[in-house]
């Protein structure tokens, strides 16, 4: 039987709630961040940096981006493909998350690492 006093604390031991207060503050800060700084660059374009900046710098050094093999960057087609990818990815993530949570109640399989630890 293990001694409870020897367990490693997962949250800050001297100030158990301190870490969470900090993380909560961080979350709020990140949430409010766009509102705080929008005034700085409100007139800027919201282009993807992949295209606008890497390609711009590369062009300055004589390198230009080529058209992709399958060019979906045509009108709203790219929007559709991103939506499709997000939907499929979201369903996959949800499906596997549910599978993992359902496995919670099941006993560990014989030979699994969990079983070996016990």
């Amino acid at each position: 039987m293990r001694n409870a006093k020897k367990t490693t604390p997962l949250l800050s031991s001297p100030y158990p709630r301190g870490g969470w207060v900090g993380l909560m503050f961080l979350f709020i800060l990140i949430t409010l961040y766009p509102l705080l700084v929008t005034a700085v660059d409100a007139s800027e374009k919201w282009s993807g940096v992949d295209e606008s900046v890497i390609e711009k710098y590369a062009k300055e050094h004589g390198r230009e981006a080529r058209e992709p093999l399958i060019n979906t960057d045509q009108g709203d087609l790219l929007l559709f493909v991103f939506l499709l990818a997000g939907t499929v990815g979201g369903f996959a993530a949800g499906y596997y998350w549910r599978t993992l949570m359902e496995n919670r109640s099941q006993k560990p399989e014989p030979g699994s690492r969990t079983e070996e630890h016990r």
Binding site: V37, G48, D50, R63
Partner: peptide, 17 residues
């Protein structure tokens, strides 16, 4: 970050770069 606003780069390097 508020005082260093400028352009930036992304990680995905495009075809042909």
């Amino acid at each position: 970050s508020l005082f260093t606003a400028s352009s930036a780069y992304a990680m995905h390097i495009s075809e042909g770069i």
